[in-house]
Amino acid sequence: MSGTLYGLGLGPGDPELLTLKAHRLISQAKVIAYPAPDSGESFARSIVAGYIPEGVREIPIVIPMRSERFPAQEVYDAAAEDIASVLETGQDVIVLCEGDPFFYGSFMYLFSRLADRFPTEVVPGVSSLGAVTAAAGLPLIARDEVLTVLPATLPAPELEAQVRKSNAVAIMKLGRQFAKVRSLLEGLGLADRAVFVSHASLPEQMACPLAEAPETAPYFSMVVVPGRDAHV
């Protein structure tokens, strides 16, 4: 019998936002895999470092930090085979994933490669969107309003078209796209409702009106424009 593949959502970064189920699985784990940069520590691993038992086998999934389009398919192909070789022995594998595994989560790329071959369980986590609105102290949508979640990496015309037809908007993956997003929202007259949040739930968290945001934004940041009914 093969082992089970677990995709664990770890939440946005604060270890106290880890679910009880994720904590239990990590504390009992024999094999743990996680995304890691090619230099520096893994953010996913750092969230739960205090809960990882001694002697656990670790499988870092090294993602090169460069500007090419992600995911790097060959990285996930290789990682999937490494994990499959463990599952075939009957051992479970815990895969750590920042935020929620299926909300822009890296685990989805392993899921697509392995879920049809091995028993798989996904453990949801607090998403970055939930953490951002909590950090901002900001209700996002109410009643019949529609929320649109957009990656800032969309071409400017497509991003603008999506924002124009939305009641409320969350724009993720800011990084180098921040100036484009800020200019777009200003041009649409939405900047006065927009809130900027970076590093939600972490000690360096920042939450402020878009007009007061810094000139540059880290990748782990978001701009939200709440629906008008959310304040009524």
Rank of each mutant, 00 (worst) to 15 (best):
F196E: 04
I63T: 07
A49F: 02
I59S: 00
K165G: 07
E88Q: 13
L185G: 11
P53V: 04
Q177P: 00
L140K: 01
A33L: 11
A22L: 04
R176N: 14
V62A: 08
G90D: 10
F111E: 12
R69E: 11
F118Y: 15
R143V: 05
A22S: 05
L210C: 02
A194K: 06
E58Y: 03
R182H: 12
A72D: 15
A207P: 02
H199D: 15
G105K: 01
L5A: 12
Y109E: 06
H23E: 05
S183N: 14
E160Y: 06
V132W: 02
P119A: 13
Y6G: 03
A29Q: 07
G130D: 15
F107D: 04
L25D: 04
V146L: 11
A72P: 14
V132A: 15
Y104N: 08
E98A: 07
G3D: 13
A211K: 15
A200G: 05
V123A: 11
E16C: 07
L154V: 07
F196R: 07
V62Q: 10
T133V: 15
T19G: 04
Y104L: 00
F43H: 05
A179W: 10
E98D: 12
E16L: 09
T216I: 06
P218G: 06
Y51F: 14
K180T: 12
R143Q: 13
V56T: 12
R57W: 02
K30W: 01
A79L: 08
E121I: 14
S85K: 14
R45I: 04
A134F: 03
G9H: 11
A135V: 10
Y76Q: 04
T89I: 04
E16K: 14
E41P: 00
V93Y: 10
P71N: 09
R57A: 08
E74L: 00
R113H: 09
F103K: 01
V146W: 00
G125N: 01
P155T: 11
K173P: 09
L5I: 13
G189M: 14
T19F: 02
Y104K: 02
V56E: 01
M65Y: 11
L150Y: 00
L188T: 00
G40Y: 09
L210T: 05
E145A: 08
L20P: 02
A161E: 15
A115F: 06
